[in-house]
Design a binder for these strands. Sequence first.
DNA 1: TAAGATTGACGCCTCAATCTTT
DNA 2: AAAGATTGAGGCGTCAATCTTA
Lengths: 173, 173
Amino acid sequence: VVVQSEQRPEDQQAPGSNTCAGLADDERLALMRLLVGTHARLTRVLGSELERACGLPLTWFVALVRLASAPDNRLTMGELSSELALTSGGVTRMVDRMVERQLVERQHCPSDRRSVYVALTAQGANALDEATATHLEGLDRHLIGPLNETDRIALVVALTKLGTDPTGGCPGG
Amino acid sequence: VVVQSEQRPEDQQAPGSNTCAGLADDERLALMRLLVGTHARLTRVLGSELERACGLPLTWFVALVRLASAPDNRLTMGELSSELALTSGGVTRMVDRMVERQLVERQHCPSDRRSVYVALTAQGANALDEATATHLEGLDRHLIGPLNETDRIALVVALTKLGTDPTGGCPGG
DNA sequence: TAAGATTGACGCCTCAATCTTT
DNA sequence: AAAGATTGAGGCGTCAATCTTA
């Protein structure tokens, strides 16, 4: 069921008028703005902290986590693409860079020779171990710390509902 | 006050072990993952809908909204940079592209000749008017629709607390 | 023909250096 | 010297075309 917000007077303006004076106060835009701003700030702070401490981009860390928790510590390119909300081409290039640093390696997939596995290396596992403490501490400080338990639970509930939106559009899924 | 999460057994593993088997279930990582995923999906869907319907990138729309609600429909580059969570260089290039499409124009700032105003043009105001209906409808469908009022309010509260984190790092602010 | 992955072209951002004005 | 804005170099992602295998 689609909830149609009640019509607001600001929504109806003569075309060519002084252009949406009250638009900045729109509740829907404000919420979106909040979400985008929070995401930007959080990824920026956590990313630079992790980069400084461990020389590891935040996106690589996420990829390493997914690989580490996958069966045999490996995933196909396509699976990784879904996990990271990246296009196929984007994953190819990210994996290229991670292979260069020997954090992961490509492996043939015997059951389907079109697919290629990307597998965690020992070096990748070590890097993940080292980075984990730093990142979890950053998460505690910037994401968990400012919220009480009620906030945190409500946030999970709301984001989960948004995540299961059937009209969604993921590149890799 | 920083809430220190209770120690989880998964956090302590022998170095060089099979590497963080339970890491994927960590509550903090899961919440961050949810936030990043929701942001990615939402900006992707709303962005492509707006682009298809009006030929306007989502980031431009946000910029136009900020300009439209500013005094005299204009902001300095630095102010716009803060509003959009973009670096100074990023804003320069974005404004370059918007000037090219005649949605905004640069104006000298008499009071401080180092600054330059970016001002909404009539054409920019029209583009904003046209895009607003599409975007608000998309917001209703993808952001407001899936949530009930309780969720929505809780989401605003939580994100606001995260936004006022004193340890934050904005490029333009 | 379709699916999985890669590649080339390109868009958009960041960082650091630079220029102008304060 | 410091602040506001711009520029060049470079990183990282998307899209569309391509190649290989099913």
